[in-house]
């Protein structure tokens, strides 16, 4: 992808349009990479910039740069959205024993039902479904909101960043290890991950493979969500940039249409990726509950 961007960049800059505009590479990179907030947005940005400079300018433990960035704000917007939607919703669901008539409540209930039926139920024993539901509801809706916030113009896709997806995947990894250790005992990591009935001489080899698998799976989650959320946005931006590049109404028409199509596709992808991330997490955590 990086190669592709550099290729496009070199193409654009060698196109002889002149050096007065930003190159597409800079524009794309500006949209899809993170920066600490220093200013803007009716003074809120300035305030955050000040907080960043006064309180958060030192690195935590030497490596964690805790300055509040645009991506952090987007994560908080997702958090805020989830809180203001689900806290009142919980009250309404609790109040209406036989189901509410409100479309709003039923819409969210159907999504919760989707999480229950498609993500948790296939991967967990019946008696653990209720215990597992909150975590996967949280995961699914957090990623879903973060994905959709990225599709609102002016906002940014926090899930289109490796650090964010890695953070979510690491939580899944911790859950896998914690659930495995609690459910199958502390020696789970030694004997629980290798399938039963394996010949003894193959055991060390398979153990290494399975152990690697435990870490590769969250890594795959990280890359999958990041790549899917980033790719669509890059394509949308490039489509829009085409009209600036060629300075033609016809190209503009085409580029807007193409961009709109990709945008609609992105709406679908945003949902599907949230589903896939939560579903695969459920699969990994569910499979660590039993010995293979």
């Amino acid at each position: 992808m990086l190669r592709f961007l550099q290729f496009v960049n070199s193409y654009v800059s060698s196109g002889g349009k002149g050096g007065e505009e930003e190159s597409i590479y800079d524009i794309v990179m500006h949209h899809i990479t993170d920066h600490p907030i220093t200013e803007g947005f009716f003074g809120i940005g300035d305030l955050i910039g000040e907080i960043n400079n006064t309180y958060l300018n030192k690195k935590l433990f030497g490596i964690f740069d805790m300055r509040i960035t645009k991506w952090v704000i987007m994560l908080w917007v997702a958090l805020f959205l989830a809180v203001i939607i689900f806290v009142p919703l919980a009250k309404r669901i609790k109040k209406d024993i036989m189901g509410s008539k409100s479309k709003w409540v039923n819409f969210w209930e159907s999504l919760i039902g989707f999480v229950h039926d498609e993500i948790v139920e296939p991967n967990f024993d019946h008696k653990y479904i209720k215990k597992a539901m909150p975590y996967f509801l949280n995961l699914f809706f957090f990623i879903l909101f973060a994905n959709f916030i990225g599709l609102i113009p002016g906002m940014a896709t926090s899930t289109g960043n490796l650090a964010v997806t890695a953070g979510l995947a690491v939580i899944t990894l911790i859950c896998v290890i914690a659930v495995g250790t609690v459910r199958q005992g502390p020696f789970w990591i030694i004997k629980g991950i290798v399938p039963h009935g394996v010949p003894l001489f193959l055991f060390p080899l398979l153990w290494v493979i399975e152990l690697l698998g435990i870490f590769i799976k969250p890594f795959a989650l990280t890359i999958r969500l990041f790549a899917n959320m980033t790719a669509g946005h890059i394509v949308i931006i490039i489509f829009l940039y085409l009209s600036i590049m060629f300075q033609s109404y016809f190209v503009g028409l085409g580029s807007i249409t193409g961009s709109l199509m990709i945008y609609l596709l992105e709406l679908l992808v945003a949902f599907i990726q949230a589903y896939i991330f939560a579903s695969l997490s459920a699969m990994y955590i569910g499979s660590s509950m039993h010995a293979h």
Binding site: L5, M29, F64, M66, A163, A166, G167
Partner: peptide
Amino acid sequence: LLRVDPGLFLWT
């Protein structure tokens, strides 16, 4: 593009 910012990781 592929930068993994430890701060953002922790914030997440």
